[in-house]
């Protein structure tokens, strides 16, 4: 029987790695992938708590999170395609429409 703390430590490490990836990468697609990693870390924490509390509600929440992530990926990738058509680049440094 593995204590739930181990799973939570893995979840925390995944979340922090997602944050690092989001900040040190400069292209939109990899940043978006890092956001998915963070969502996954949260899912792992939800499942761990559902397991240790002996209830199924956490698994239902994870089901909804996965659904919302799918919708978010579709919209986000459409926006990335639009940005690429307009700027011919997906690096965040090249997108400075609102810079004064």
């Amino acid at each position: 029987m593995i204590p739930p703390t181990y799973y939570l430590v893995v979840s925390i490490i995944l979340f922090v790695l997602g944050i690092i990836g989001f900040f040190i990468k400069k292209d939109l697609i990899t940043q978006f992938l890092s956001v998915e990693v963070m969502l996954n870390a949260a899912n792992l924490a939800f499942i761990t708590f559902a397991h240790s509390a002996g209830s199924l509600d956490g698994q239902i929440i994870v089901f909804f999170v996965i659904t919302v992530a799918a919708a978010e990926a579709a919209i986000g990738l459409a926006i990335i395609l639009l940005v690429y058509r307009k700027h011919k680049s997906i690096k965040t440094e090249d997108i400075h429409l609102m810079k004064g």
């Binding site: 029987m1 204590p3 739930p4 703390t5 559902a50 397991h51 240790s52 509390a53 002996g54 209830s55 199924l56 509600d57 698994q59 239902i60 089901f63």
Partner: peptide
Amino acid sequence: PMATSVSGQAGNASEIGHLL
């Protein structure tokens, strides 16, 4: 305090569908 984990019920698909 909650270091000892309760053995949770198995999340089989029929129970999740019922809850949904």
